[in-house]
Design a protein around this nucleic acid. Structure first.
Lengths: 222, 222
DNA sequence: TAACGTTTAAAACAAATGTTTATCAACTCG
DNA sequence: CGAGTTGATAAACATTTGTTTTAAACGTTA
C-alpha cells in the first residue's frame, strides 16, 4: 500500500526536522525532498502544514494519553481509594513518557516537540493540545492534589508547572547541554541517566517549604 | 538626531515582536511598519536580520553581565574569602535579572528572549551568546561550586541547568500559564510573585538528596 | 554657500514559501 | 473489460521573505 507508506514517511521525516529546527524553519520542500515524496503529497494527505504539525503531535500524544490513563487506572485500582503518594505519581508519569516513543526510538524527538509546543508561539498548536489532551493533565492534577493536601491550591499549580518546565526544558534542549557537559566532563549522559538525576530534584522541589508571605520585603543578602 | 531615534525605535519594536512571535515568524516588514521606519533602515543600520537579533540580545545582556559581574565583585569583597552561601548567590542572580530590564519595563520580554535563545534552534544565536557571555556563567558556576562542596561535579552541573531551566521556562512562557492560572483561580500573578514562589523551590532542588546509584533497576511503584 | 557623507524613501530584486491545478498511472469493482 | 476512484507527479500560482538599488532629503563642515 503506497499511501500509508507515503503518509508515515512524511510523518517520520517531519518529526525529525521539526525537532531539529522548529516549525517555521522547516519547509515542506525540506520534508518532502528528504522523505522522497512529492511536494503536493503533504497538502493532499494532511491538508495543510498546520495540520501536518498537529498530526506529528497526535502520533505521540494519542498513545501517550491512552497509556497514561491506563496507568492511572491501574494505580487507582491498586490503591483502592487510598491516596497515591506523590513519588509514585511522578514515577508513573516518567515511565509513561519513557515508554511511548521507545517504539520509534525517538524519545529525544518527543521531548523536543513538547518543548516546542510550549515555547513556540504557534497559537494553533497550544489550542490543539489543550483541547485534545487537557483532560489527562486535569486528571493527573487531581491526583497530585490528593497527594499534597498541605499545599495551597495556587502553590501546587505553579510547582507542577515548575517541575514540568524543568523536565521538558532540559530534555528538549538536551543536545546542546550534552555538548557542554561532554566538553567539561567527558562524560556521556543518556536520557535515562538524566531522569535518574531529575527524580530527587523534582521530588524535593514539590516538597519545598512554602514561600514567605507575599510582602515584598527582600531579605538582606547576608 | 534622527539616527539614534531610528535605531532604538527598531530595537524597541523588534524585541517586542520577537518575544511575542519568535524570530522566524517576525518579518522585517512587521518590524519596520510598526516602528514607522523604512524597511531598508534595518539592513542599513544593522546589516542583516541576524545582526538585528543579536543586537536585541546585546541590549539586554550587556548591562546584565556588567551588573552581574559588579554584584559578584561586591559579594566576594563582602565575604572576603569565606564561602558565599548558595542562597545568596541565587538571590543575587535573581535580583540582577530583575533589575536590568526594569528600566525599559520589559522583564517579560527579557525572559521570553532568554527562553527563545535556549529553545529556538538558531545556531548563530547560541554561538553568539556563548561566545560573548559565557564567562559570566563560568564565574557564577565556580562560586556555586564553592557553595556546594558536597555535590559531585556532574551533579551540580546538571542541577544548575535544571533550575535555570525552570526559571527561564516558566518566566518565558508566563503569559500562557497566567491565562490558565487566572481561569482556574481568578488570581493574577506578577513576575515578582512568581519569583517569590520560585525561590524555595529552587533552593530545595539544589539541595535535593543525591540520586540512587546509576544501576537501572527501577524501584517498584508501591 | 557649496560639497560632502549620512539617513530616509520607494521601488525592484531574486529566492523561497505554502498551496493549487492539471495530467497521468494504478488499482478496484461492477 | 471498462468506468471510476485514488494516489503520485510535475508544473504553475500568488505571496512573502530578506536584501539591494536608485533617488531624494537632510545635516554637517569647509
Amino acid at each position: 500500500m503506497a499511501q500509508a507508506d507515503t503518509v508515515t514517511r512524511i510523518l517520520d521525516t517531519a518529526e525529525v526536522l521539526f525537532a531539529e529546527r522548529g516549525f517555521a524553519e522547516t519547509s515542506l520542500r525540506n520534508i518532502t525532498s528528504k522523505a522522497k515524496v512529492n511536494l503536493a503529497a503533504v497538502n493532499y494527505h494532511f491538508g495543510s502544514k498546520k495540520a501536518l504539525i498537529q498530526a506529528v503531535f497526535a502520533r505521540y500524544l494519542d498513545p501517550f494519553t491512552e497509556r497514561f490513563h491506563a496507568a492511572l487506572d491501574e494505580l487507582e485500582a491498586q490503591y483502592a481509594g487510598r491516596v497515591i503518594p506523590l513519588e509514585v505519581l511522578l514515577e508513573t508519569m516518567a515511565k509513561t513518557v519513557l515508554d511511548v516513543p521507545a517504539e520509534r526510538n525517538s524519545l529525544k524527538v518527543f521531548m523536543r516537540l513538547l518543548g516546542l509546543a510550549y515555547s513556540q508561539a504557534q497559537g494553533h498548536l497550544r489550542r490543539y493540545i489543550q483541547e485534545h489532551y487537557g483532560s489527562v493533565f486535569s486528571r493527573f492534577s487531581d491526583l497530585v492534589r490528593q497527594a499534597t493536601p498541605d499545599l495551597p491550591e495556587a502553590e501546587r499549580f505553579w510547582r507542577l508547572h515548575f517541575v514540568l518546565g524543568t523536565v521538558i526544558f532540559t530534555l528538549s534542549g538536551l543536545d546542546a547541554l550534552r555538548d557542554i557537559a561532554e566538553k567539561d566532563y567527558g562524560e556521556h549522559v543518556s536520557v535515562r541517566d538524566l531522569i535518574r538525576r531529575l527524580r530527587p530534584v523534582v521530588v524535593s522541589a514539590m516538597n519545598a517549604p512554602l514561600p514567605d508571605a507575599p510582602s515584598d520585603s527582600l531579605p538582606a543578602a547576608v
